[in-house]
């Protein structure tokens, strides 16, 4: 991964966005999807992913469903109604942040 600190603050938003798109996902699936989308640039570790999922669950943004898959239990996460609303807010915040960073890093000079 290039610089994990740059991604750290956006981990929750990344999780919410993926769940918004896919409906419901389990932990390992999230790590693989992120790896695939970022072409291996971002690898979410177990130590970062699961505490983030549990925090979002405790905040009432995620709901949990357990299913039996191949001799073991699998925990699926999905957005609650509050989670869906929060995803929209957080994505808007992230977009605003990216725009501000772009302006800072690559300002467009103009004479008015």
């Amino acid at each position: 991964m290039g610089n994990s600190k740059l991604y750290k603050g956006s981990l929750n938003t990344i999780i919410l966005k993926l769940l918004e798109e896919k409906g419901k996902m389990y932990g390992y699936e999230i790590t693989q999807k992120v790896k695939e989308l970022t072409k291996g640039e971002l690898k979410i570790t177990e130590g970062a992913l699961y505490p983030a999922l549990h925090k979002l669950e405790a905040e009432g943004l995620l709901d949990v469903e357990v299913a039996k898959v191949d001799n073991r239990l699998r925990k699926y996460y999905k957005l609650t109604e509050a989670g869906e609303k929060e995803t929209v807010n957080r994505l808007a915040e992230l977009e605003e942040f990216i725009r501000s960073m772009q302006n800072l890093v690559n300002p467009k000079w103009s004479i008015e």
Binding site: T45, E46, G47, Y50, P51, H54, A58
Partner: peptide, 23 residues
């Protein structure tokens, strides 16, 4: 490769749970 991360998750989980319970 991953045992260290799994143990870190376990430790982190206790802290997260304590915070959730206290809240």
């Amino acid at each position: 490769v991953h045992k260290k991360d799994l143990l870190k998750y376990n430790k982190q989980f206790k802290k997260t749970t304590d915070k959730i319970v206290l809240k």
